[in-house]
Design a protein around this nucleic acid. Structure first.
Lengths: 234, 234, 234, 234
DNA sequence: AATGAATGAGAATTCATTCAT
DNA sequence: GATGAATGAATTCTCATTCAT
């Protein structure tokens, strides 16, 4: 599991009072659960499976989670948190809005690749949560999207990208990244991750960049010597 | 349920011999199952739920399906088949490759919209099938994608679209359509279906069209009088 | 199935009135049932199995039997009847009581061998019948035993056998014959049917014959020339 | 249930790890199962019946047995083990081969009498087990037979019994004992257990003893004063 | 805090039996 | 008389959850 607490915002009850212990135990259990849920699905994973993999007793789990659904909630949040954590890391230190935008896109693709099965889990199992828990998940998703949307908005504000509906386009970018996990069974036959990212960059630059944006882009990623612009601007 | 047989390629056993009756009963049961699976998920739907909704006895279901998994398989195929059926309908009679391409995209978005919950079902529940059944689902998905890919290829062949990796871009289009279902909870707050489709058209034309493609596009969809090109070409 | 009506004494209701048809249909169905019950057991044989093997519909069976138990009853009676039919055939024409006794023993062993699986069926499944049906089975068994007991009694009356408790010894003989079926899995590794019968004859003659009985026995089955009495009399 | 572990040789899985507890619970459950299976038959006894009689929950049973068949297996082994346990007890301390032989026969009859219903169970339900489990049952039966066969062989070796095919005759003795259970419904009308045993001894002595054997027999069981030899030697 | 044995409600599946055609 | 589709009660087995130790 990730090293950050996955409980952000979730109101999950524990019978145990020692905060550090709660952190450690929940981490242990969620790590086991994410792996098993991802591999076998939520319903086909038993509490005993999780307990065995986490190397604790089944009874212990109920001291840190009120029910199985709670484990799922924290498992999903753990996945979403890993997205939310990686993107800022990828863009920190970069000042150019276009560079930040592209870095965010690439970072998202890479974190999805690292947690491919877990990404599928989020798509498959969110509906197993009751409505209010689902809201929490959605809020996390929107927060992550916002990280990307902000980059795009900056590009537009600086005239590097066409004025598009930012959130809609953000969803396209997010979906592009998620698709690497969702359709991995086929995409992996067509290209590797680097090629997939490159294809995405090619696609979104054409879809979004203004002439000014293109000039900036060329500075960021000069063409190799002797190679002509592959997709000539109109 | 749809009016076409959903059994295409699936080897689902029945104890009943009368072919027409099998069609009718399976249709009845799959229709109930798709609705319940979509709403409550595969695992939280019981055979008795399905029987009650289909207005048959629980035992009857086992005369037409060998187990619950079989119902899921035919349910998923029913959804995928509805995609595969609508797209050809939308493009038949159109000759221009670009018109066909755009019509296919729009049709896909509309059929996803009509079967929004069922589309989610496919994402959530395919993994509940055993490997060989899953292959069948994947084959159907690829066949549907091929319908769109062919349109795109034609556009490229005629110099209307940039030469891109056809199957990868097809996946983007497919994912764009699916996202309307996957992220409906948020997208529906941002726009309606028509706007979503328009946004997609705007996006993909910018990403793909050549100058020649743009001229063709203007013939297909002239700007309203007095309105300037919204996103001026670079 | 055997050619004699198996309904002797059983009050099995039929919805059909034509007597000859009842005979034929019941024969057809019981023949199928005996084979299936013998091979798979009563509980693991379904009405549909029987219908399929008898080449009729499952509904038809209920026109000739009131329930599954009824089929079992007639199946068991069919087996017991075949015993009761073969023994008289084997001893008719024989006048000597000892010859009749030995012929009855041998005949019983042979009919058990011919219907080995069906004999097991009787041991396994009689308890599946309700008490009153079971009485009927027992009456048939006693009647068959009586055929043998009468032979033994004659031998005793004529001083060929020791005066023993006739019915108890009869049970020994019956059990000896049945054992060929019950323990076939092992006995068949030790000897063939002829040897088994010979062993039985050897055993029972030693256990039962008087000196007068032995002299009679020697007339019936003279020793091969040059062979001494294998088990010399005391 | 018997006080010895019935698991001899059977590879029955348990989810519980505490060995002593497994012994206790399995004993509890098998005791209930043997009684119910004997009375109602294997198929007509439900897991819930067994649970209720054993005074545990139905779920508990599945912590100690992997399925219903496993309960049957251990139930049958429990019965066979009680045979295998009683015979050695009956002959230990006896040195004379003939005395041992007769004691074994009598002991077998008595243990069958004590577990009459359970003996029937073995005949009725062994076929409900899959082939490999059945082999285990057969091996146990053969091992028990061997205990008797050894006594008989000793008698033959010392010239007390005629040289007969030991295993075949052993099966006769075994069948004689089993018949007390199999045909109890009738035998019990003819005699009590002591008389049945006496009848068996009378029968087998006449069938097997040599003159030397008879002299030994008279020493073991002198005739009551003033009573003539009932079945005078020829 | 931790364990794991025990519980029992719940779900899929089977199959004897009925009955409209 | 014959058919076979339809029924639904009954059964096995699973697993989240509890609680005594």
């Amino acid at each position: 599991m990730s090293d950050m607490t996955p409980t952000s915002g979730a109101d999950v009850k524990s019978h145990v009072t020692d905060g550090a212990l709660i952190q450690r135990r929940r981490g242990q259990i969620v790590a086991a659960a994410v792996e098993l849920f991802s591999r076998q699905g939520y319903n086909d994973t038993t509490i005993i499976d999780i307990a065995r993999k986490a190397d604790v007793s089944s009874g212990l789990i109920y001291q840190y989670f009120s029910d199985k659904e709670d484990i799922l909630l924290l498992s999903l949040l753990d996945v979403l948190d890993s997205y939310k954590r990686e993107i800022p890391l990828a863009i920190e230190g970069l000042n150019d809005p276009l560079a930040r935008f592209l870095a965010a896109l690439e970072a998202y693709c890479r974190v999805v690749d690292q947690r491919r099965e877990a990404t599928l889990l989020a798509y498959r199992s969110t509906k197993s949560l009751p409505g209010d828990r689902r809201q929490l998940i959605k809020a996390h998703e929107l927060a992550t999207n916002q990280l990307i949307a902000a980059c795009l908005q900056d590009c537009i504000d600086q005239g590097l990208c066409r004025p598009v509906k930012v959130e809609l386009v953000t969803y396209q970018l997010v979906t592009f990244a998620h698709s690497w996990a969702l359709k991995y069974w086929r995409l992996n036959e067509l290209c590797n991750l680097d090629e997939y990212v490159a294809e995405g960059v090619d696609f979104y630059t054409h879809a979004l960049l203004t002439p000014k944006g293109w000039r900036r882009y060329r500075k960021l990623r000069p063409l190799p010597a002797g190679q002509a612009e592959p997709n000539s601007l109109p």
